[in-house]
Nucleic acid binder design. Sequence first.
DNA 1: GATACCAGTTTCCCAAAGGATACCAACTAT
DNA 2: ATAGTTGGTATCCTTTGGGAAACTGGTATC
Lengths: 112, 112
Amino acid sequence: MHTDELTTQQKIKYVQDTLYVIAGKWKLPIMIAISFGHSRFREIQRAVPDITPKILSKELKELKTNKLVMRKVYDTYPITVEYTVSSYCKSLKPVVDEMINWGQNHRVKVAE
Amino acid sequence: MHTDELTTQQKIKYVQDTLYVIAGKWKLPIMIAISFGHSRFREIQRAVPDITPKILSKELKELKTNKLVMRKVYDTYPITVEYTVSSYCKSLKPVVDEMINWGQNHRVKVAE
DNA sequence: GATACCAGTTTCCCAAAGGATACCAACTAT
DNA sequence: ATAGTTGGTATCCTTTGGGAAACTGGTATC
């Protein structure tokens, strides 16, 4: 909100904190996929192009550790695992929306 | 703007494009430092905590290649090099502002 | 009986990112 | 003379991120 009142160093610190959470090629894509209804492991894998199960598994663990996604196991017959995003993860929406916007315009710009 | 009309896969694509540009620990901090008036090499180095000259040099080259920052050399006696951000870089402001915001609230949350 | 789905794990590997330390030439202030 | 400033380079090293391929055990389908 009051970003104009911060020093350069404070802004850098906050941005680095945010970068630390969303860093890497896959964390945001995975969170986007889950938040749009892809809750099962294979569903997420299909929704996020080119991700391997090993990477997906590792990233999901990290996201769970950082309280960004939740994992629920249902004791059904084939066994069902459901991933959902936390409200904390949802608070990233403004950041993600701006990134989607910028990426979209970036594509347009590059295509010119 | 019309992010609601995009498919999950398109959103993921755009976010990955954006991530690709701002990826890494240092690119955004450097751009922030420059955009807030730290235009000289050593100034930037002082403004961005813990960055080494080698990393700074490398990142500045990449940012210059991607048209995000400009480099001007003045033929003065100690020699003066001035870095400025491009208007393209300035278009990232909404993204960065949201990241500053989120990082700030994140700190508050962690401190609770 | 063979194949496919589920949710992953295991192993082995490579490239890129990042960091520590030292150094350079030219100039200036003490 | 000595130390500090300027804008960087050079060398070496460790960490991390990511990827390919195969495999697991249980169930369900063809």
